[in-house]
Computed example of a mutant assay.
Amino acid sequence: MADTQTPTLAETHSPPGWLRLLWADKYATVAAVFLLFVVAMAIFGPSLFADLSSKVNFRGRNLAPFQFEHGWLMILGADSLGRPILARILVAAQNTMTIAFFAVLAAGIVGGSLGLIAGYSRKLVSDVIMRLADVIMSFPSLLLAVIVLYMLKPALGNLVLVLAITRIPVYLRTTRAEVLEIRERMFVQAAKVMGASTWRITFLHILPMVLPTLLTIATLDFAFVMLAESSLSFLGIGIQPPEVTWGLMVAQGRPYMAQAWWLSFWPGLMIVLTTMSLNLLSNWLRTVLDPAQRWRLEGSKETANV
């Protein structure tokens, strides 16, 4: 009877799952839950609240928040056209998240690929790629985006393209630095001796070692790109009405800051909370993906009690 209750050696030393590691960091857990809520808003918000977010009601212009007699959609107040701020925040989440996601994805793929090539190719090819990164980095990213968007139509696709281009050097330089160190390890040398091609070594042996670092950077970069999009929308060269983003909502509420602070406060709060959650989740990812730091979560009391 006692033997059936005693855990086996494999069960005793088996590493905890991702959920247990996440639960061990309470701040990361709260951040992950909030980000899931934001993703749900981005997916379902427009289909559920698109009509309500664009419905004009001049009787409710600049309605103050927490006026419960006007319905739950007006709990955060209304904008200068009487449209419920809560509905507009839910709808704007899709454009804000879509722009940030595809900009980070494109920058990660292009920058990561170029970094792999620059780190494992001949010096001439590496120098050409790095000079390309230097050219992009010589311009302030926000200034470059402003110049390009003034020349192009400020559409969603152009906004993604501009933001992705400005972030490519981050992934390129990081990936190249990682590859230069990994290429000297024994398993890479063994693959060379066994006759593996350059492409096989690069994408099947080195890339999996670089991905954890790129994933951590992408989480942080997602927050940066979202702030950059909000800045461009605030300047009036981002997404244009009738489309809406959180940054555009902040810009539209700027003329009414003195008498209707809530027009800019609530979308600005969503930007701050989302950025903070991404930073907390990025710190957790960096700890989990680093074998030298992962013990901090694996050995915590919270993990042991789950």
Rank of each mutant, 00 (worst) to 15 (best):
R167N: 11
W295D: 14
T166V: 12
P140T: 07
V56P: 05
H13S: 10
A103N: 00
V225C: 00
T4H: 07
P242W: 06
E243C: 05
M186S: 14
L132C: 10
L90H: 06
T274W: 00
R61W: 05
G299N: 14
T219K: 02
P291D: 12
S113T: 15
Q240R: 01
N158K: 02
L116E: 04
H70C: 11
A64P: 03
Q189M: 15
M257H: 02
G253D: 01
A292M: 10
P255N: 03
P169L: 07
S277T: 03
T175G: 02
I43K: 04
Q189F: 06
G111K: 01
V148F: 12
V188T: 10
T202R: 13
V39I: 14
F139Y: 11
A258L: 08
P212R: 00
K192M: 13
L9Y: 08
V244A: 08
F102R: 02
L132E: 04
L63W: 07
F101G: 00
R88F: 07
S121I: 07
H205P: 09
T202S: 15
S264I: 02
L232Y: 09
S231Q: 11
K123Q: 14
A196Y: 14
E69P: 06
A40K: 04
L163R: 00
L297N: 00
N158G: 01
R185C: 10
V39W: 03
V288M: 03
A106S: 12
K26Y: 05
V188H: 01
F224Q: 09
L52H: 05
E184H: 04
P291E: 14
P208L: 02
M270Q: 06
I217H: 05
T287V: 15
V193R: 13
A78I: 11
L204K: 15
L220K: 07
V306Y: 02
S231K: 08
M194F: 13
L235S: 06
A191I: 10
G299L: 15
F66H: 11
T219F: 01
H13G: 11
L149S: 05
D221F: 02
G112I: 10
M226F: 13
L152G: 09
A196T: 11
L142P: 03
G238A: 04
L114Q: 09
R59V: 08
Q240K: 03
Q5L: 14
R294S: 06
M257F: 14
E181L: 15
F222K: 12
W18M: 09
L152K: 09
P212L: 01
T274H: 02
